[in-house]
Write a protein that binds this DNA or RNA. Structure first.
Length: 154
DNA sequence: GCCAACGTTGGC
DNA sequence: GCCAACGTTGGC
């Protein structure tokens, strides 16, 4: 099993929003970065655990736990002319963008703010904390996951 | 709102 | 295939 961190702007779609969705599940559409797409298309497996991260907000950080709940499949918004995610170069025969479904998994006792991640010795090597990182989907090691879950459970 | 980092685009 | 211009991300 693999662990991931997925960023979302809570003003657009928050961890609480995910919990309120039918079946507490949401297709992770709108990713338009090749590296992030490759993680979803090539490496994610149903049942993988996700750190649901809130970005571009007052207190950025990990908001809760989710899980991957589907195999990868084409992002339908790439074919939708009315969507802001429409991609004229994508076709149904050769889709360019793929996604997985994301389902609520577990609440943490409290959010784990980015500032706490930064001061945690055990997380120094975490990809999220490396300078210049902007990827919206990042792999997380098992060790990092354990540390962050503990931070959110104290 | 600023700005650094960095991905993408397109002319050559 | 290079690289300048431009756009986006995201913390602060």
């Amino acid at each position: 099993m693999n662990y991931w961190l997925m960023k979302s702007e809570p003003d657009v779609f928050s961890f609480e929003d995910l919990k309120k969705r039918p079946k507490q599940t949401e297709p992770w559409n709108g990713v338009r970065n090749y590296q992030a797409r490759n993680f979803m298309r090539d490496s994610m497996k149903e049942g993988d655990i996700i750190l649901f991260y809130h970005s571009s907000c007052e207190i950025p950080g990990v908001a809760g736990l989710a899980k991957v709940s589907s195999a990868p499949y084409p992002d339908s918004t790439q074919f939708d002319k009315k969507s802001e995610y429409f991609d004229p170069k994508a076709t149904k025969e050769v889709p360019r963008w793929f996604l997985v479904d994301v389902t609520f998994h577990q609440d943490l006792k409290h959010h784990v703010p980015l500032s706490d991640l930064k001061t945690c010795k055990d997380l120094e090597a975490m990809r999220l904390l490396q300078p210049g990182n902007r990827l919206s989907i990042l792999p997380v090691t098992h060790e990092e996951f354990i540390v962050i879950k503990k931070l959110g459970s104290n």
